[in-house]
Computed example of a mutant assay.
Amino acid sequence: MGRPSRKDEILQAALACFSEQGVDATTIEMIRDRSGASIGSLYHHFGNKERIIGALYLEGVGQYARLVEDGFSGADSAEACIRLLVACYIDWVVANPEWARFILHSRGRVEASEMGERLREANRLHHGRIDEVLRPHREAGAFRKMPRECFVSIVIGPAQDFSRHWLAGRTRTHLADCRELFMDAAWEAVRARQVRLVSMP
């Protein structure tokens, strides 16, 4: 793996500052000092703090999207696809707890910012790719019928909710230890129920 770019260094410095000081209390000067970048370099790459916040958010959700994208190539069944969505989410959160905490608390701010349209486009592309991969399984009747808008929330929602509690230190159980449980629960929640016909005497 190559050396991080100056842009990546600034984002990681910003994440450290946001985690230690809070997003609102962090200044451009703090990020500059932490990253070792010049003010000129920082403004060249981002322009202002709100764009740093947006870029950090987009990079984090983009990493999850890339994990899913890479994993889809080996997911050969409807169940494997659903389990992959949950596994990638949990794995990314466990590997990046500070980043995940930032994302969970910053969505509204980014959506309302000048980066909001980029976030909506990234989400549209990501969910479009998920729909594309799941479409053959859906058409084959692998999933129970439900509004399309509910599907991803039902799959990821329980793991995301527990992640919030884990990241806040409100659980005794480690998130990674629940990985299989949430994968099982997601599949059970969306899989089609096969009804066995019984002949009456």
Score class of each variant (00 low, 15 high):
138 R>G: 08
124 R>W: 04
194 Q>E: 11
118 R>F: 02
100 A>G: 13
77 S>W: 02
89 Y>T: 11
87 A>L: 09
182 F>Q: 06
190 V>G: 08
163 S>K: 04
103 I>M: 15
186 A>V: 08
156 I>P: 00
170 R>Q: 14
199 S>M: 14
158 P>G: 06
135 R>H: 04
152 V>F: 10
133 V>A: 08
109 R>H: 12
137 H>P: 00
78 A>K: 02
179 R>T: 10
128 G>N: 02
199 S>L: 15
192 A>H: 02
97 P>C: 15
134 L>G: 01
115 M>Y: 12
179 R>Y: 11
132 E>T: 11
88 C>I: 09
129 R>N: 02
117 E>R: 13
151 F>T: 04
105 H>L: 15
156 I>K: 01
76 D>H: 07
177 D>K: 15
113 S>Q: 04
131 D>W: 02
80 A>P: 01
132 E>V: 03
146 M>H: 04
116 G>Q: 06
137 H>M: 05
102 F>N: 08
196 R>A: 10
155 V>L: 01
197 L>S: 12
158 P>H: 06
129 R>V: 07
170 R>G: 13
75 A>I: 06
180 E>D: 12
159 A>W: 03
95 A>V: 14
90 I>R: 06
79 E>T: 05
99 W>L: 15
157 G>I: 04
118 R>Y: 03
189 A>V: 05
166 W>D: 09
123 N>T: 13
116 G>A: 04
156 I>D: 01
88 C>H: 05
122 A>R: 07
159 A>T: 04
121 E>I: 07
133 V>P: 00
108 G>T: 14
180 E>H: 04
97 P>R: 14
117 E>Q: 12
140 A>R: 02
198 V>L: 14
159 A>V: 09
133 V>E: 00
167 L>H: 05
160 Q>L: 15
99 W>N: 13
133 V>R: 00
175 L>D: 08
137 H>T: 06
81 C>G: 02
120 R>M: 15
167 L>Q: 04
145 K>Y: 08
90 I>Y: 09
122 A>D: 01
194 Q>K: 11
98 E>S: 14
125 L>Q: 14
142 A>R: 03
95 A>G: 12
138 R>P: 00
76 D>L: 08
81 C>L: 06
162 F>T: 12
178 C>T: 13
187 W>E: 03
171 T>F: 04
96 N>Q: 15
168 A>D: 15
176 A>P: 04
144 R>I: 02
171 T>P: 03
88 C>P: 05
116 G>K: 13
119 L>R: 03
147 P>Q: 03
175 L>P: 01
175 L>N: 10
195 V>L: 11
189 A>N: 06
113 S>G: 03
200 M>S: 13
136 P>C: 11
194 Q>P: 05
132 E>N: 00
82 I>A: 04
113 S>T: 07
154 I>Y: 01
159 A>M: 06
141 G>D: 00
136 P>Y: 12
168 A>Y: 06
93 V>C: 05
130 I>A: 00
104 L>C: 09
146 M>S: 01
187 W>P: 01
197 L>Q: 10
127 H>A: 14
184 D>R: 12
179 R>W: 12
193 R>G: 07
178 C>K: 15
97 P>V: 15
105 H>C: 13
132 E>G: 03
137 H>E: 02
89 Y>S: 12
177 D>A: 15
74 G>S: 07
156 I>G: 00
